[in-house]
């Protein structure tokens, strides 16, 4: 399968849930998905389109649009196509379904996105901070309006 047939299959299976699908090149495709249906789309991608490798999962903060985009980058071992899938969440209460039942390696990605952006994942097996201390939970350091950076308390300069 090439990029065009993959996008055609995805949009014909989910005509309502997947929108703004586009083919950037022969190997890169993008699509946006409704946040409620992200697990169904991921299960269809893994089981029917053989997208078996979740390369990365992260988030992007857009304070101007008042949105947080959760980005899934999904690769395949069968065909040389990478799908960049985005789900747009409101910035005040970003809640999305976890994709750990489909891609098991999303576990730590979602924990890190939770501690850095504050995206809450429903039905996650163990949603707690990954590397940040528990006291910093709630500061969401990678959001654009974070006040703790730069930390000007240092006195020593080398």
């Amino acid at each position: 399968m090439n990029a065009k047939s993959i996008i055609a299959s995805l949009t014909s299976k989910f005509p309502e849930e997947v929108y703004d699908a586009d083919i950037e090149s022969d190997i890169r495709t993008v699509a946006k998905v409704k946040p409620d249906n992200v697990v169904d789309v991921c299960r269809y991608l893994k089981e029917d389109l053989s997208f078996g490798h979740l390369c990365c999962e992260s988030a992007v903060d857009y304070p101007g649009r008042n949105e947080i985009e959760v980005v899934y980058i999904i690769g395949s071992y069968e065909h040389p196509v990478i799908l960049t899938m985005k789900a747009i969440l409101p910035r005040e209460n970003p809640v999305i379904e976890s994709v750990v039942p489909v891609y098991w390696n999303a576990n730590w990605y979602e924990r890190e996105t939770y501690e850095l952006f504050g995206v809450k994942y429903l039905n996650h097996p163990d949603l707690k901070p990954l590397v940040l201390p528990i006291e910093m939970l709630g500061e969401w350091p990678l959001r654009k309006d974070y006040q703790g950076f730069p930390n000007k308390t240092a006195k020593n300069l080398v």
């Binding site: 350091p141 950076f149 930390n151 308390t153 240092a154 020593n156 080398v158």
Partner: peptide, 21 residues
């Protein structure tokens, strides 16, 4: 090393503890 003295490349970072001395 510079990191232990001032933070080095992680100077002014949000998760680095400053002023170890």
């Amino acid at each position: 090393g510079d990191c232990a003295i001032s933070g080095g490349p992680f100077y002014e970072s949000y998760s680095t503890f400053q002023n170890v001395d």
